[in-house]
Design a protein around this nucleic acid. Structure first.
Lengths: 130, 130
DNA sequence: ACGCGTTATATAAGTCCGTATATTACGTAA
DNA sequence: TTACGTAATATACGGACTTATATAACGCGT
């Protein structure tokens, strides 16, 4: 038998949804994961707390923030070391603007294909793969 | 210094573009790469020739086809072994319909966010990262 | 002075994805 | 019967990504 690595595992219901990814050269400047991370940083006030909330390693979260900050004209996240709580991170006004624009694009794209996605779903498999 | 794996390498101009990915459980049932592979199979008549054309291994192309065929209600690609040319693969009528619908969704989503993407581009970095 | 929590960085280990390669099965043509 | 090109499958290897872990720097509170 083949290794079947590509076979879809049963995990959750089919949820076809368009994804918006803003590419900058070879890097993903903004996408679903980075947008969620930005919101988590805004809510928690630090990269490490956001990472814990999103169940990812601090290193990965830091790299995602680093990529975002480098891809855009100005930082989306401002960080500080030391202080009463050891430091922290906050989303900048510029970052809030980028996030808002991204969410708007995501909504617009989803709305534009909503009906087609529904029709598409009917074409997909129902029986569990062996 | 950090490993900087996430830093964007200079390769080509920024080309922000929304990507449509149709998820089926944890697998990508249809996306840009699979759509292109379907077209290559249609043009060449075999998985192996399509793989060569797309500069990917036969194994990868076969796995992508396997995933597509398992994610949908009916096969998108029909294969045959043996015969005058050793066999081959062809896109089914169902596959053509899925591909057409996917292309339509992709166009609709791109058109819906075209202007916002243009504005977004202005927010991105211009200087090459160090 | 010391402790604390975070940023920032380095290193090691494991996982996942991809290519490369080899093998078998298959059906038609010569 | 043999040769041929492809599908289908298995294994090994390498690279990229992810986590885990450790360490240093930092600045404020006690």
């Amino acid at each position: 038998m083949a290794s079947r690595k590509s076979a879809p595992m049963r995990s959750r219901e089919p949820a076809p949804k368009p994804q918006i990814r803003i590419m900058f050269r070879k890097a993903i400047a903004m996408g679903p994961g980075k947008a969620d991370l930005l919101e988590a940083i805004e809510q928690t006030g630090s990269i490490s707390a956001a990472a814990r909330k999103m169940r990812m390693s601090y290193r990965r979260a830091w790299l995602l923030v680093d990529t975002m900050n480098q891809c855009f004209a100005k930082p989306l996240v401002a960080t500080a070391t030391g202080g009463s709580h050891g430091g922290g991170a906050q989303i900048t006004d510029f970052g809030r603007d980028v996030l808002r624009r991204y969410r708007e694009m995501d909504s617009a794209a989803s709305a534009a294909v909503a009906r087609q996605v529904t029709e598409f779903t009917r074409l997909m498999s129902r029986s569990p793969q062996q």
